[in-house]
Design a protein around this nucleic acid. Structure first.
Length: 731
DNA sequence: CAATTGACCTTTTTT
DNA sequence: AGGTCAATTG
């Protein structure tokens, strides 16, 4: 049981006011670390506990699945008997709305790379040059229109380019419709349309959700905003929480002016400001505050703390990116040795994903347990994308993108010309590629045999998916496609060490399907696919895992760490040069302000210790770039910073071959690579596939098969060789 | 005609 | 450095 008194002990006056303001529109301007999650949580608990709403009458929208899960868990702790589970991201909310509203075929969610492939096809089909019309660029332009709820008709068709663009956009919409596919933006748009086009259904939902709470409101886009307006049309019990200083997703359509307009949307709105920071010590906050005074487009605010000054920020300068990474890792080691921190307390942050490699290598070199959260996530691994493409084709035989991805994976002897033939046949008969394949004749005997197996595989899996759950279908597909067999050569040996990870990933995918069917009510393949499409790396991130966290500045929003390293604080990295070279001066100013906010988000993640590092030069796409310190560093007051210059280069013996071995054996994404076996040479005379070994002449390598006292080893840079076990030692 | 190798080109952040 | 695409090989 909760009482107002409990709340008074747990919340400050401002927070309490926000929690107790139950009715009417409320804007909570919550600075970094000011306890906004806490406020949202208590507010939900209060609504339930006071009987103002039942759990399923509250709609809470968060930015990530992880934030949603966390909120569910924490509320479950406060109110154990209440089953509060309706916390969503905008995207997962829309998936729920759409599966409830449409009785048609389940849709498939295209991710960015599916989307890009489709756009690429369209550009090719229109005989346009894909340098001038770069698919990635077109994709983001289309996305921007969609995020503003604007169809192709909104493109002003004044030039050849704009006419082509409108046509690409139009064709894209048509093809997506044929493929029965939604991209991320479509989920929001169609969620909105479901409200607009089906009044009885919409009213049902509007009546159901008595209270609506939205987190990270500064990063909402126009489409999401319109959706929210639809949901809250009759009901003004809307609470939004945000911080304009932490708006960092403009490239995804986020528009912080929506938040700043809240009081115009709802003139009766109450505004509560949370400015007491509970996370960081004084000098860190002082630096953050000072930095942000340089932004013009913001609501003025100053965070404060009663924690005292704490440590100054350590600024460290290194000769190059490699020594930066190595020194950061050594610093972590040193702090661990002192005993004040554990591995899980550390976060190493960077602006671009490509910076992660050096830190990964340094961690492996020093035996530091680490985890990379982000870009090359599990679901982006080739083999996983291949399996999902199979499943997409199972769901929809018209999905040409999926078809083209896997028609020759594993190799079926169907090369470019065969595919071209299939495409031509499909086009002239106005059918999909898969349907064309089913009808076509005139392949070689070998090809025909493979094609028949392929068609049977897809059709059989379809039948299984119709009668059984997602796990059964996935298992059947993985086993029957022999996808894992293709990782081995004729002798039954792994083709190379890299395939070990692929195999592990395939197994992991099967596990995730099993996991899905045991936790979710909707056990269908469609449900599983939608679920994994909306998952991000961050959702699987567990701060209690006891590893150092490596991730981008963007991903850290909402997280906090005792010790934070902000790395690569250089001009052209942060602010990133892509954000500074806009067409107009005001646009590039906006770009720099967004980068400054991003840096601010990084700074405000730190609780106790904050390090900033930069290197004087670093490798970039094979070329050496000479760097200057970020302009943002000069915006931080001198007395917040302690400068340490370290020109030491890591010991020679540690550089070199190690980089390569770590890359070859690196597991994608989530896998924790910590191996505490250390460097001791074992007495073992037999090896297992996957063992890391060294040889006096050939150096380091990975065992890819082992029998009769000899092992076949994939040596770094030297190819595979069969070696008598006694000449090998395990690392 | 499929598979393999070598030349070329890229520039960020992600639900 | 790493991925993509055209020329080259088997």
């Amino acid at each position: 049981m909760l009482s107002e008194l409990d709340f008074k002990n747990e919340l400050n006056d401002r927070q309490l006011e926000a929690v107790l303001t139950t009715d009417g529109p409320l804007l909570i301007l919550a600075g970094a670390g000011s306890g906004k999650t806490r406020v949202l949580m208590y507010k939900i608990a209060w609504l339930i506990e006071k009987g103002l709403a039942r759990p399923n009458e509250i709609l809470a929208v968060t930015f990530t699945n992880k934030a949603a899960d966390e909120m569910k868990t924490r509320i479950a702790k406060m109110l154990p008997e209440c089953n509060f589970h309706y916390v969503n991201t905008f995207h997962s909310f829309c998936v729920k709305v759409l599966s409830a509203s449409t009785k048609e075929n389940p849709f498939i969610i295209y991710d960015d790379s599916d989307k890009k492939s489709l756009i690429k096809d369209i550009i090719k089909q229109m005989n346009l040059d894909d340098n001038e019309y770069a698919p990635a660029k077109i994709s983001s332009i289309i996305s921007n229109y969609k995020n503003r709820m604007q169809g192709p008709e909104y493109i002003e068709q004044t030039t050849v380019e704009s006419i082509n663009l409108a046509n690409i956009y139009k064709t894209y919409l048509d093809k997506m419709a044929i493929n029965n596919a939604f991209d991320f933006d479509d989920l929001i748009i169609n969620g909105y349309k479901a409200f607009k086009n089906d009044e009885p259904f919409a009213d049902q939902l509007r009546n159901r959700f008595k209270y609506v709470l939205i987190d990270e409101y500064q990063d909402i886009n126009t489409a999401q905003y319109m959706l929210v307006k639809e949901i809250c049309r009759n009901n003004k019990n809307i609470t939004v929480v945000g911080d304009d200083d932490q708006s960092i997703y403009k490239f995804r359509g986020a528009d912080m002016s929506i938040m700043l307009r809240f009081e115009k949307d709802y003139p009766e709105a109450k505004v509560v400001r949370l400015e007491q920071n509970y996370r960081s010590t004084g000098k860190i906050l002082e630096a953050a505050n000072a930095l942000m005074t340089n932004n013009k487009m913001r609501k003025k605010k100053t965070l404060w703390t009663d924690k005292g000054d704490g440590e100054k920020i350590n600024l460290m300068i290194y000769p190059d990116g490699k020594s930066e990474a190595h020194s950061v890792v050594m610093k972590i080691k040193e702090l661990i040795k002192k005993g004040d921190f554990k591995y899980g307390d550390f976060a190493v942050l960077y602006r671009t994903n490509s910076q992660s490699r050096l830190f990964e290598e340094a961690c492996r070199q020093e035996g530091i347990p680490y985890k990379i959260i982000g870009a090359n996530s599990f679901y982006n691994a080739k083999e996983i994308k291949d399996i999902t493409a199979y499943l997409h084709l199972v769901m929809n035989k018209k999905d040409n993108i999926a078809f083209k991805r896997i028609i020759n994976v594993p190799k079926r002897g169907l090369g470019d010309s065969a595919i071209k033939r299939i495409e031509e046949f499909a086009e002239s008969s106005e059918i999909s590629l898969f349907e064309a394949l089913e009808e076509m004749i005139g392949f070689t005997t070998k090809q025909t045999e493979e094609i028949n197996k392929f068609i049977k595989l897809i059709n059989d899996t379809t039948e299984i998916a119709e009668i059984a759950d997602a796990y059964t279908a996935v298992k059947y597909l993985i086993e029957s496609s022999k996808i894992k067999d293709s990782f081995y050569n004729e002798e039954g040996e792994l083709i190379s060490a890299e395939y070990l990870n692929r195999e592990a990933n395939v197994d992991e995918f099967m596990n995730s399907a099993q996991d899905y069917v045991t936790t979710y009510e909707d056990k269908s393949l469609a449900g599983f696919l939608a679920n994994i499409s909306l998952q991000s790396d961050l959702d699987h991130y567990n701060e209690n895992e006891g590893t150092v966290s490596l991730m981008t500045f963007h991903l850290t929003k909402g997280l906090e760490f005792p010790v934070v390293f902000l790395t690569g604080i250089e001009e052209n990295i942060i602010p990133h040069f892509m954000s500074t070279k806009a067409k107009t001066q005001s646009l590039s100013l906006a770009g720099i302000e967004e980068e400054r906010r991003l840096f601010y988000v990084g700074i405000t993640r730190a609780e106790k210790l904050l390090f900033m590092t930069y290197a004087l030069k670093r490798m970039n796409r094979g070329l050496m770039d000479y760097s200057t310190p970020s302009r943002f560093l000069s915006e931080i007051p001198d007395d917040c910073i302690k400068k340490i210059e370290d020109r030491k280069i890591p010991p020679r013996s540690l550089v070199g071959t190690y980089n390569k071995i770590s890359r070859m054996t690196s597991l994608k994404g989530q896998k924790n690579m910590f191996d505490n076996s250390g460097m001791a040479i074992s007495e073992e005379t037999s090896f297992e596939v996957g063992d890391k070994v060294t040889h006096n002449i050939f150096g380091k390598g990975i065992v890819i098969s082992s029998k009769n006292g000899t092992s076949k080893v994939d040596f770094i840079g030297k190819g595979t060789k069969t070696i008598v076990n006694s000449f090998l030692s395990k690392i």
